[in-house]
């Protein structure tokens, strides 16, 4: 029973973090029809910003805030310098952002070196949850992720700017002709999507070994989550993250991590095959 609870909590924490990363992807895709292959590297950038902040002596939460700002800014730059030039060409966007991911990763290797870095846990020790001892920091991660995800949903579904964003996702041309400043929305949402990934990276960094390959490690599950849930759907992001994150953690507890990865992939592609537009859109 303890084991089940632990796995359950681990799964929840992974799902929530994955959701943050996935949300960024889905929002950017919905808004701009852009599949950002560099999204994983934005996650990576967030983690390494925290590394830099900590070695500069900044407290943990300042580091996370800095990660959000730095990666958000990076998002703005990327949108302006790269995305804007391949707008409307989905395959070229995939390629250009893929090139970007290579460049960003290599930049990080140049600056920080290729070896894995371990960060100190800002909140060591465990807390008693539902009768078991669970690492306190992981609970913090869950809380932060849940809070951010909830904020995103609240903004999107309860504010007027959120309405504008959703209108652009639903019908870009129409929204534009109704006076929505789509260009500003593009920049803004890309930056926010990036910032989300950056925060996720910073927050996850203390419990993972931070190395330059982390980006791909999160990108692949995020992509699978998006495909499983539905490329254009916010609800799909939740469903997808839930399935991929849940399956990943549960399977990893019972078998070698690598085998678990393979199983998750197989599950994902079977689902995608049966539901080519994602689970949120129904069976075809």
């Amino acid at each position: 029973m303890e084991l089940v609870l632990t796995i359950g909590l681990d799964a929840l924490s992974f799902v929530l973090t994955l959701l943050l990363v996935t949300l960024g992807l889905v929002i950017v895709y919905g808004m701009m029809n852009v599949i950002n292959m560099a999204h994983g590297e934005l996650f990576l950038l967030g983690a390494y910003t925290l590394v830099a902040a900590q070695s500069a002596g900044l407290p943990f939460w300042a580091g996370v805030l800095l990660a959000m700002l730095v990666v958000g800014l990076a998002g703005l730059l990327i949108e302006e310098l790269v995305i804007r030039h391949v707008y409307g060409r989905p395959i070229d966007t995939i390629l250009a952002t893929w090139g970007l991911s290579i460049a960003i990763k290599q930049l990080i290797i140049i600056v920080f070196g290729p070896a894995a870095i371990s960060l100190t846990n800002p909140l060591p020790g465990s807390v008693s949850v539902l009768g078991i001892d669970y690492p306190a920091y992981r609970l913090v991660i869950m809380a932060v992720s849940a809070f951010l995800a909830a904020t995103v949903y609240l903004v999107l579904f309860r504010t007027s700017i959120g309405l504008q964003i959703r209108s652009v996702i639903a019908n870009r041309g129409m929204a534009g002709s109704l006076g929505v400043n789509t260009r500003l929305m593009d920049r803004g949402t890309f930056a926010v999507g990036a910032a989300l990934a950056g925060i996720a990276g910073a927050v996850m960094a203390p419990i993972m070994s931070v190395d330059p390959q982390m980006g791909v490690g999160f990108l692949i599950p995020a992509f699978l989550a998006v495909l499983v849930g539905g490329l254009n759907s916010l609800l799909g992001a939740v469903i997808g993250a839930g399935i991929i994150g849940g399956a990943s953690t549960t399977l990893s507890s019972g078998m070698a991590q690598a085998t678990a990865q393979i199983c998750v992939f197989v599950i994902a592609i079977v689902v995608i095959r049966l539901f080519p537009n994602g689970l949120s859109k129904g069976f075809r």
């Binding site: 599949i35 989905p90 395959i91 995939i94 791909v216 692949i220 992509f223 699978l224 495909l227 490329l231 070698a256 690598a258 085998t259 990865q261 393979i262 992939f265 994902a268 592609i269 995608i272 095959r273 080519p276 075809r284």
Partner: peptide, 26 residues
């Protein structure tokens, strides 16, 4: 079936490559 679109297909092949490498390592 209905087949995957270009972008979806590209992503699936990417995931397949990552998984293939992991499988080969094991």
């Amino acid at each position: 079936g209905r087949g995957l679109s270009g972008a979806h297909l590209a992503i699936v092949t990417l995931c397949a490559a990552v998984v293939a490498e992991v499988a080969a390592q094991r």
